[in-house]
Nucleic acid binder design. Structure first.
Length: 455
RNA sequence: CGGGCUAUGGCGCAGUCUGGUUAGCGCGUCCGUCUGGGGGACGGAAGGUCGCAGGUUCAAAUCCUGCUAGCCCGACCA
């Protein structure tokens, strides 16, 4: 993408309304624009990040054997009356009437809708296990939205629902989600710690929240420092292997880690040696629930088991805050100059900076680098504008692309360009072809993910 | 929803208390010249129903009333 043809409305000054780093930087980097309280437009740069996060979520869900679909944002109130949640949910749910006076709502979550679909079409134990998910806009009419996309009213979220014959099957689904979530966050460069949590309006007795440690987090968290050393990495996971999946869950949930809602100081002190006790703040980026027959009973979602008996489905639901993650990643990775995107979610992988736009030699060198990188499948933002060097560097630092390739007449005279890593600031002078080779090796066409047919 | 506050060009602000020339400043934008490796300099220009409605007054960004939107603290929350 050529910057001169792109839409990147960066702000030099800090918007007055933004209180925390991610909100400030998303506004300054031209990623979002507030439409009304807690509701944002995603401008091109922000949109690219959102879609990258979304893609990772899809890939890891599909890898875990979960099936993508799409449900609507608007739902009928009738379904919510069946589950009994129409009244329980309160003011947080946005209620709307259509022209016929029918009561509708902008969905804050989709348990009722998915249960309605499944009860209509799933009748036998032979149809199970089944986990369906979608990524869709949700709305919760927060009393006080704040912190940009971290706590908006409208938000983009992956929510998945498992339907199983037995409690044991459903708990395996729960574990499968936990492992796939850990992997999802790790791919984004984040460590999100599963913490025992309270269930809230979704209900259920088995639930974990995933928290990214950050000073600006809304939750108070208590944990054993040992948990921060755990990594799933790229170990092979067979999501059908109950023992393996359960063992990974045990590994990640054995060290003490709880939010203030479930924190128990006595247990904390008994289990964790003093030097490993940590108290911090965290941003919640996902939550998983097992809630058994909470919805299948009132809504009559049953199957016939192998003995011919009609039994209620065991269910759970599992969410990842996709739009919130964009903010959480920035909270975790920024410095005083701007964002430091992890490579997997960066809007572009490389920023190509032409230091002397209009100079025949520099222009030609940049055009060639740009064409070669594009051809190799590297995502490049080419700053071909007439700005001065300082302004270009400041913009690149602000939007936080992981690598910057700087091309100027001074370097070209010596036959080199400069490759700079945003995160460390480390620079290296290379021949242009070496730079292309280096970046191509790193970012060349990504290998196709299995069954990534949702695209 | 309680408490506090704000609304003036794309962004950040001054002006309001004490009504009175043409509503200013910085950034950004556009044109030109010089520049050219960390937000450069100079010259010129465009851009404003002063949140909305009503009222007071010879005169309202400024005073009064009502409304709307947004922000902060709290309670609440993926």
């Amino acid at each position: 993408m050529r910057l001169s043809r792109y839409f990147l409305p960066v702000l030099k000054e800090t918007p007055a309304d933004a209180q925390i780093a991610s909100h400030r930087l998303m506004l300054r980097a031209g990623m979002i624009r507030q439409a009304s309280a807690g509701i944002y437009s995603w401008l091109p740069l922000g949109f690219r990040v959102l879609k990258k996060i979304e893609r990772i979520v899809h890939e890891e869900q599909i890898r875990a054997g979960h099936i993508p679909m799409l449900m609507p944002t608007l739902q009928s109130a009738d379904l919510w009356r069946e589950s009994g949640r129409y009244d329980d949910y309160g003011e947080e749910m946005l209620r709307i009437k259509d022209r016929h006076g029918r009561e509708m709502l902008y969905g804050p979550t989709n348990e009722e809708l998915i249960t309605d679909i499944v009860r209509a079409h799933v009748t036998s134990y032979r149809d199970l296990p089944l986990t369906l998910y979608h990524i869709q806009w949700k709305f919760r009419d927060e009393i006080r939205p704040r912190f940009g996309v971290m706590r908006g009213r409208e938000f983009y979220m992956k929510d998945g629902y498992n339907f199983d014959l037995t409690r044991e099957d459903a708990l395996h689904a729960y574990n499968r989600h936990m492992v796939s979530y850990i992997r999802t966050y790790e791919r984004m460069g984040l460590q999100a710690i599963p913490m025992r949590a309270a269930s809230g309006p979704i209900g259920g007795d088995n639930t974990h929240e995933f928290l990214v440690l950050a000073d600006t987090g809304e939750s108070e968290v208590f944990y054993d420092a040992a948990i921060t050393d755990l990594r799933l990495g790229n170990r092979e996971v067979d999501y059908n292997d109950r023992e393996q999946v359960a063992a990974i869950c045990a590994e990640f949930t054995t060290p003490y880690a709880r939010t203030d809602e479930t924190h128990d100081p006595a247990v904390f002190e008994a289990e964790v040696p003093p030097e490993r006790r940590r108290q911090s703040r965290g941003i919640e980026v996902g939550q998983i629930f097992y809630f058994g027959t909470k919805y299948s009973e009132p809504m009559g979602a049953t199957v016939v088991n192998e003995k011919g008996e009609r039994v209620h489905l065991h269910m759970g639901s599992h969410g990842i805050g996709v739009s919130r993650l964009a903010g959480a990643i920035i909270e975790a990775f920024h410095d005083e100059r701007g964002i430091l995107w992890p490579e997997e979610v960066a809007p572009f992988q490389v920023g190509l900076v032409n230091l002397r736009q209009g100079d025949a030699g520099t222009d030609a060198a940049c055009e060639q680098l740009y064409a070669q990188l594009q051809a190799a499948g590297v995502e490049v933002l080419y700053d071909d504008t007439d700005e001065r060097a300082g302004a270009k560097f400041a913009t690149m630092d602000l939007i936080g692309l992981p690598w910057r390739l700087t091309v100027g007449p001074r370097g070209l005279k010596a036959g080199v360009v400069e490759l700079t890593e945003r995160r460390t600031g480390a620079s290296e002078e290379l021949k242009p072809q070496e730079a292309v080779a280096r970046l191509t090796a790193r970012f060349g066409p990504r290998r196709a993910e299995p069954d990534a047919a949702w695209l």
